[in-house]
């Protein structure tokens, strides 16, 4: 068994926390785990990528280009950016949120249309799950749980070897008790969005 995952989004979206929870759960389920990300240097607002590799034996934390089984994208442009990481026949879960980078607003780079970016994703990936993270988070009643919605979506993929219960346990051990129920609800709705969608 091996699963190479790439998490991609924008600093401040909770990518590091989410990938941590996923890896903690993998460890609880008895897998070897390695992950990598970069923090520090005012990362907020910049592109953030985290890698997670789980399997029976994992030697190093970085995923090779063209070898990722799954991309979990927190934002459309950042999802497109890591497409070269995805293997042939790979799966993408993408949060349907588009945030144009500031350089396009300030005029130093050309703005891309979100539908073109989603087109790139569809062209490369065998399977794409488009998740309305903000809509689901709204249903739960707090925009902050978008990343838990995405974790729910990830958990429903056939590629995911970690049990639902273990992931829920990992969520609860990472977050304060007062946030448990809202996050578990978000997790469940994210799951359903893939299972039913």
């Amino acid at each position: 068994m091996k699963l190479d995952l790439v998490f991609s989004g924008i600093g401040g979206q909770g990518i590091v926390v989410l990938s941590d929870i996923f890896c903690e759960a993998a460890l609880l389920d008895g897998f070897d785990v390695a992950k990598a990300e970069v923090h520090g240097m005012a990362q907020r607002g910049g592109s953030i990528v985290a890698y997670a590799r789980i399997g029976d034996k994992v030697e190093s934390p970085l995923v090779e280009r063209g070898k990722a089984d799954v991309i979990l994208g927190f934002e459309i442009l950042e999802t497109a950016r890591v497409l070269p990481m995805l293997k042939k026949g790979g799966t993408v879960v993408v949060n349907m949120k588009y945030i144009p980078p500031n350089c396009t607003v300030q005029g130093s780079a050309e703005l891309k249309k979100p539908q073109d970016l989603v087109g790139m994703v569809r062209k490369k990936a065998l399977k794409v799950h488009e998740v309305d993270g903000a809509g689901i988070a709204d249903k739960v009643g707090n925009p902050i749980v978008v990343n838990t919605v995405l974790l729910g979506a990830l958990s429903a993929l056939p590629e995911n070897p970690i049990s639902k219960e273990t992931l829920e346990k990992a969520i609860c051990s990472r977050l304060k008790p007062k946030f448990h129920s809202i996050n578990l609800q978000a997790f469940q709705l994210g799951r359903e969005s893939v299972l039913l969608g």
Partner: peptide, 11 residues
């Protein structure tokens, strides 16, 4: 495939 995408540096 090399994708031509606008950068998103930290700020």
């Amino acid at each position: 495939e090399v994708l031509d995408l606008p950068p998103r540096p930290p700020g």
